[in-house]
Design a protein around this nucleic acid. Sequence first.
DNA 1: AGCAACAGTCAAAGCGCTTTGGAAAGTGAT
DNA 2: ATCACTTTCCAAAGCGCTTTGACTGTTGCT
Lengths: 343, 343
Amino acid sequence: MNLKELSQTLGLSQTTVSRALNGYPEVNGATRERVERAARQFGYRPNVRAKGLATGRALAIGHVIPIGTKPELVNPIFGDFIAGAGETYSRYGYEMILSIIDGRNEEAVYRGLKSRRAVDGVIIHGPRISEPRISLLQEIGLPFAVHGRTGHFDKPFTWLDVNNQEAFREATNYLVDLGHRRIGLVNGPEKLDFAYRRRVGYLEVLNRHDIPVDPALMHSDPMTEDAGYAASRAMLALPDPPTALLCASLVSALGARRAVEECGLFMARDVSIITHDDALSYLQNGGDTPIFTATRSSVRDAGRRLAEMLLEAIAHPEAPPQTEVLKAELVIGQSTGPAPRKD
Amino acid sequence: MNLKELSQTLGLSQTTVSRALNGYPEVNGATRERVERAARQFGYRPNVRAKGLATGRALAIGHVIPIGTKPELVNPIFGDFIAGAGETYSRYGYEMILSIIDGRNEEAVYRGLKSRRAVDGVIIHGPRISEPRISLLQEIGLPFAVHGRTGHFDKPFTWLDVNNQEAFREATNYLVDLGHRRIGLVNGPEKLDFAYRRRVGYLEVLNRHDIPVDPALMHSDPMTEDAGYAASRAMLALPDPPTALLCASLVSALGARRAVEECGLFMARDVSIITHDDALSYLQNGGDTPIFTATRSSVRDAGRRLAEMLLEAIAHPEAPPQTEVLKAELVIGQSTGPAPRKD
DNA sequence: AGCAACAGTCAAAGCGCTTTGGAAAGTGAT
DNA sequence: ATCACTTTCCAAAGCGCTTTGACTGTTGCT
C-alpha cells in the first residue's frame, strides 16, 4: 500500500493524506482522524526512500568503524554505545547505518556517505589526539558528533566525553591515600585521546605527591584481557613491583587479576586494582557489590545522549555546537586495600 | 554533483551516463571511459535514495537487536558477527542498518522494515528453539538468513550454524577420556537453540558412558562473567563437586575460573575447564598458546559467510535456500588435565 | 450585500535516479 | 541504392513521496 493507493481508497488527494499523517495544521480534525485510522488499518508506512528523496534528508545516522588487525576501537564498548544511540534513533524515527571498513580508506568512506547522501550525520568513535576526521568532516560539511574529545580545532564541534583526567586523578589519589607509592598504569592505546587524558590525571597525582614516575610502570596497549595480563605480569616481575594497578577497562582488569593471582598474590591484600568501568551490560563489575573498585560511567548512557546531541545539531544547523562532560563516579569494590607494609 | 549536472557537463544524456557507470553494454568504450573519468574527477556518487527509489531495491540489510533488561543476545558476539557481515556488505555495495529495539514490539519492527522498504533482507540473530520470527518473515515475504538454526518449519530457509551438538559431544568426550565423571555444564540460556543443542551433545556422551545425569550440574544462564562465576561457585560447593566444567563462552569461562580460584583450587589440576570460544577479536583465548581448552569457531567468519548467503538469496529469489554448518575445532589449552584421583 | 480572510482541499511539479521505447547513424549484404 | 541489422545514443516516463501555488467554500465584518 502506497500513498497513492491510500489516498484513492479514502477519496482524498495525496497532498491531504500526506499532510494528515505528518501533522500539518491545515487538515480538518475529522479528516485527519479518518486518514490515520485507514493508515493503521492498511498498515501503510511511507516508503523511506521516496520520503528521503523528497525531503532531501536521509533520516539516518552513520557510524563508521574501522576494523584493523588490532582491535583498537574496542568492540564491546562500541556494542553498548550503539545500543544507547539506537534507542535515541528509534525514538526520533532515525535509522542507524553501520559501515565496517578496513581502516585505510576511512576518508573515502566519509566522503562517500556525504556525496551519496546516505546519512544526515555521523558519530565519531575513539578520537585520537590528532584527529584527521574532524577537519575532514568540517571541510565536506557533514554534521558529526564526537564520542570523546580531542585537541584544538579552529571551529568548535559537538562532543560528549567522560571526565577521564579527573576520574583517574581521583582514582590515583585514592590509592595514594591508601599508602600506595608504586602504582602501575595499564592504560589503553595512548594515541587515543581518552587514554592520554587518563595518564595525565595519573601523572598529576604522582607529581603532586612527589612520587617518582617510573616508565616501567606505565603500559599502553589495546584493552584486551590478554594485553592487560601481559602488562601486569611484566610489572609484577619487576624488582620493585607495584602494589597497585590502574586499569583502563574491566577487560584489562580481568587480565590484571589473572596476573596477580598467577603470581600467588591476592588482590586487594597484596595488589590493589582500580579500573575504569564502562558499565557494559554483558560484562558487569560483579553483581550487587562491585568486585573492582572502579571509576564508573555508563557508555550506553553516553550513546543515548550523544545521539540526541547530534540530532539536535542537525535540526538546528545554525546553533553553536554543544559539548557535555559526564562525570565518572568512583565506586569502592573489593579490589583495593591499604598498601602492604614493606618488610 | 548529480547525474543531470554530470551529463550536462559531458554533453551526454542522463541515460548514457547512467548506463556507462552501471556497466551496461550499450555504451561505446570510449564514451564509458570519458564518463568514468569525469565521475571520478567530480566525485560523483549516485544519490542512494534516488537509486533505491528507481530500482525498488534498498541496497541495505537490516539487523534487529532486541535489548531487554537481560543481555540475552550477547553483545560481544554480536559485535564480531557484524564486523564480519559488514565486510561482505561493503564488498557488495550494501549498507547495514541496525535497529535497536526494546524487545516487546519485535514483530512491528520487522513489519515496518518491510512496508517502509527500508531493507532488502534481514539477518536473524540468536534463534530460539521455538522461533516466531521465521514464520513472520516468511509470511510477510521479507528475505532473511538465520545465524544458527532452529526447529522444523514447513518452508525451508537460509541458515548458517556451528555444529554445536557435535562440538560439545567432542568436548565432553575429551573430558571423559581424561577420567572426569562429574562434569558441570555452564550453559547459555537454553531457550536459545544453540545452547539447547550443546546440552544435547553433552548428555549424549554422559549417557553413552553411563555417567549419571545430575540436574545440579547443569546450569543455564546468560553468558556473563558474573553468571558463569555464580553457576560454577554453586556447583563447586556441592557435596560431590564437579572436576570439570564445560562453559558456553569465554566470558562465562572467565567467571568459572574465578570461582575455581576463589575456592582455593587450581584450574587444570583440580578442575578442568573447556569452553566454547567464538574467537572474538577483543577477547582472545590467550595469545600464542590457548589458555582454555576450547571448541573454537570464528563468529566473524560466520558473519562474513552468512551475509554472502543472504545476498545470494536476495539476488536469486527462486533458488532453494542454502544452509551451511561450520565445524568448531577442539583446541587443547592449559585448562584441562586428568581427573584428580579421589582419596 | 459585498468583500476580505481563512480553512480545507487539490493538481502538479520536483527530488535524482533507472529503464522503456525509440531514433539516428553506421555496417554489410543484396 | 536499398534493406536489415547493429551500435550508440536520447527523451520521457516512472519510482513514492513532499511541497508549492491555486482553488473552493465558509465565515466575519462592514
